[in-house]
């Protein structure tokens, strides 16, 4: 898995390329924690390049959501593939994360 950061209209965007699993999700956790510790009001996680996400990936997103709650921050998901969305739905977690078709939509919503 490859992770990179960028800022779009002042909003931090985490781009993920590859599988998010037990081996790679600690890296994502670290990246997201960096933003939540700075109390970023909105973080966009770009899932366009993610074909597979396991429970640890889901849990990592949930943990970022929890960390953003005290300052009313939100973690937005952009372009999740069908199977990633399916995993979120199976876990009944879609209500936690605003989901957008693109990074631009997530940033400008």
């Amino acid at each position: 898995m490859k992770l990179s950061n960028r800022t779009v209209s002042g909003v931090p965007v985490v781009d993920i390329e590859g599988d998010v699993d037990m081996y790679t999700s600690p890296g994502l956790r670290e990246q997201l924690a960096r933003f939540t510790s700075k109390q970023q009001k909105r973080i966009v996680v770009n899932l366009e390049g993610v074909e597979f996400m396991d429970s640890s990936g889901i849990a990592t997103l949930v943990q970022a959501y929890k960390e953003a709650q005290p300052f009313n921050g939100e973690v937005c998901l952009a372009s999740p593939a069908g199977n990633v969305l399916r995993v979120l739905k199976l876990s009944n977690l879609t209500s936690l994360f605003p989901v957008f078709d693109s990074v631009d939509e997530a940033v400008n919503s």
């Binding site: 037990m22 081996y23 429970s55 640890s56 889901i58 849990a59 990592t60 949930v62």
Partner: peptide, 22 residues
């Protein structure tokens, strides 16, 4: 198994366990 075989941190493990128990 999560503690023994992965590098996941405590908070993430807690969430994974709750998802599995659910």
């Amino acid at each position: 198994p999560l503690r023994k075989l992965t590098e996941l941190d405590r908070a993430v493990i807690e969430i994974v366990v709750k998802l599995k128990l659910e």
